[in-house]
Computed example of a mutant assay.
Amino acid sequence: MKKLLKEPFLHFVLIGFAIFIVYAFTVDENDSENAIIIDDSDISHMVSIWELQWQRKPTSEELAGLINKTLKQEVMYREALKMNLDHNDEVIKRRLAQKMDFITSDVSAMVNNPNEEDLKEYYNKHSERYMRPAQYSFYQVCFTYDNHSDPVTQAKLVLENNSDISIDEFTKLGDPLPFPFYYESIYANKLNSELGGNIAESMENQPLNQWIGPIESGFGIHLVYITEKTDPQLPSFAQMKDVIKRDYDYDMELDSREKIYKNIKKSYDLKLEANLDSEIKEKILTEFGS
């Protein structure tokens, strides 16, 4: 029994019930008043706004997304009106729907109070989020397309003819560029960001302490001399606890808000009277009914 009382979902149900019971008696049981009608004029309005912003017509998937967004706004708007959130407040539907979102966020905050065990379980389930990428320390020279008609061939020739010279001498054989010849302990994702392309992935299985290549980046063709590599590592739970707590709270808030929306929209009937493609109509009806 004690374990049941500690269940977050039970808290969610009880708190949600407490919030909505205050206005439950005001709900009209007449199904027609709970009907949501989307007609051609509504679709035309959505498309017009989209075209003004993006200078093109929406795709079928984008139109379906617009309709779903409008449906969610309408459901939240009507529920907000039932709770008299519009009293002395002259705001548009979007603002009222946002107020409903704020309430569901508050419910989520009250429900989700994870303990150490909850956070560790979340950490283990989503460990790939916190994996630190590989790190590299290496020298590099680059041959650009601006300076060479065939930089790949040039890189191969330099590699074949200069295997016995020092690193300092080797680094003088490439083109001058606005980044260092030597990178120390740089993460793979940062390396890709600085040089462009997927240069870090090309270095994954390469040997240490010898010139290898050619390897392509956003600047051109590289020869690299890797001195040190650290494989991807997962930080400990203690190191990432604050980040894990933040991510947990965010995910649980999204989940709780979606559960509340799904529960609310059950009391509404959707009538699609617009002249829509059958595929779009089926997508909307399926999404609203799920």
Rank of each mutant, 00 (worst) to 15 (best):
L5K: 12
P8S: 07
L10D: 01
H11N: 09
V13K: 08
I15Y: 13
G16T: 10
F17D: 14
A18G: 09
A18L: 08
F20M: 07
V27W: 10
D28M: 07
E29A: 11
D31Q: 09
S32L: 14
E33S: 10
I38Y: 02
D39W: 06
I43T: 03
V47F: 02
I49R: 12
I49K: 14
W50K: 06
E51I: 03
L52W: 10
Q53K: 14
Q55A: 13
K57W: 06
E62G: 03
A64Y: 08
N68V: 12
T70F: 13
L71I: 02
K72M: 12
Q73M: 14
Q73Y: 05
V75Q: 01
Y77I: 01
A80C: 01
N84T: 09
L85I: 02
N88G: 05
R94H: 12
R95E: 15
Q98S: 13
K99P: 04
M100F: 10
D106W: 15
S108T: 01
N113A: 10
P114K: 05
E116L: 10
E117D: 14
D118V: 09
E121L: 11
E121F: 09
E121S: 14
Y122I: 06
Y123S: 00
E128I: 13
Y130H: 01
R132V: 08
Q135P: 00
Q135H: 15
Y136S: 00
S137W: 05
S137A: 07
S137K: 04
V141T: 08
V141Y: 03
C142P: 01
C142M: 08
F143L: 03
T144M: 04
Y145P: 00
D146S: 14
N147M: 06
N147G: 02
H148E: 00
S149L: 13
K156S: 04
L159D: 03
L159Y: 06
L159P: 00
L159H: 09
D168C: 02
D168V: 05
T171Q: 03
K172T: 07
L173W: 06
G174P: 00
P176E: 13
P176N: 14
P176T: 13
P178V: 05
P180G: 09
F181P: 03
E184S: 11
N192E: 04
G197W: 07
G197S: 07
A200Q: 00
E201S: 12
L208V: 05
L208E: 04
P214T: 05
E216G: 06
G218I: 01
G218E: 04
G220L: 00
G220Q: 03
H222M: 05
E228T: 07
K229R: 14
K229I: 02
T230C: 05
T230L: 10
L234Q: 11
P235V: 08
S236M: 03
A238F: 10
A238P: 00
A238V: 11
K241E: 11
K241Q: 13
D249L: 15
D251L: 09
M252L: 04
S256E: 06
S256Y: 08
S256T: 15
E258F: 12
K262T: 07
K266Y: 06
Y268F: 15
Y268P: 00
D269N: 15
L270C: 02
L272T: 06
A274W: 02
S278D: 15
I280Y: 06
I280G: 03
K281N: 07
E282M: 08
L285R: 09
F288K: 01
